[in-house]
């Protein structure tokens, strides 16, 4: 199986080609905006570097959010567009899960992921340490509520944290925090995608936050 993975949801633009578990090419660039310009050339680059062409891709793993609304749509529209051009399996992976899967944990610990959601909020979710199964629903909350929520959900187990929201919610846990590893990893996304059945429907955007719009009120 040759997997193309794509992530444009957060502060990076990343893609990888992974064949039967072995990374053939990986690109990741730190990027606050401009994912729409960079993604297609970046995918062309990984295809070239891996010596593959689009017809050989059997599966695409793409992050679906939560993250920047625009970034979420850039990756999804591109992945779904590739699937229009040629038959290919699609797998959507949440950014929360992708980040959780990139964390190294010790026995008995749980993985807490927090992503800076801007506007004074963080996106978060708790995952099992060993199985990576979600232990609770994803949420969007103020950082202090998020910290309490994750601690409660961890129920005394060791809580290993990751994501750009950690400094906001757990300022006391910054000793071993590494900014460099808080984005979804393209190889991890590819492994997660390869390990599960393909989505029956094209993956949908996972915003975790409603659009900013208020119903019109009578004006007279």
């Amino acid at each position: 199986m040759i997997v193309l993975s794509i992530d444009t949801c957060l502060q990076a633009c990343s893609a990888a080609i992974v064949k039967d578990g072995a990374p053939l090419a990986v690109r990741s660039e730190a990027r606050e905006k401009g994912h729409a310009e960079r993604l297609a050339p970046l995918v062309a680059e990984v295809l070239d570097a891996a010596g593959t062409n689009p017809a050989q891709i059997t599966r695409i793993g793409v992050t679906t959010g939560p993250g920047s609304f625009t970034g979420v749509r850039v990756g999804l529209a591109f992945a779904r567009g590739l699937a229009v051009a040629r038959p290919v399996e699609l797998v959507g992976i949440s950014t929360l899960e992708a980040i959780a899967a990139g964390v190294t944990v010790h026995d008995g610990a749980v993985r807490g992921v927090l992503i800076d959601g801007r506007r004074g909020q963080v996106y978060g979710q708790l995952f099992d340490g060993a199985s990576l199964m979600p232990l609770a629903e994803p949420f969007v909350e103020n950082p202090d509520i998020a910290a309490t929520l994750l601690r409660d959900q961890a129920a005394g187990r060791d809580l290993v944290l990751a994501g750009t929201g950690v400094p906001l919610a757990f300022p006391d846990r910054m000793d071993d925090f590494d900014w460099a590893t808080q984005q979804p990893d393209a190889v991890v996304i590819a492994s997660l995608s390869a390990a599960r059945p393909a989505d029956a429907e094209p993956p949908a955007a996972f915003y975790l936050r409603p659009p900013d719009a208020k119903p019109a009120r009578p004006m007279l």
Partner: peptide, 19 residues
């Protein structure tokens, strides 16, 4: 811009895939 971007990414993907 949000909508334009979706159409462009769909088109870019199609073009890249089909060369």
């Amino acid at each position: 811009i949000g909508g334009v971007m979706v159409g462009m990414m769909t088109a870019k993907a199609y073009a890249l895939s089909r060369a």
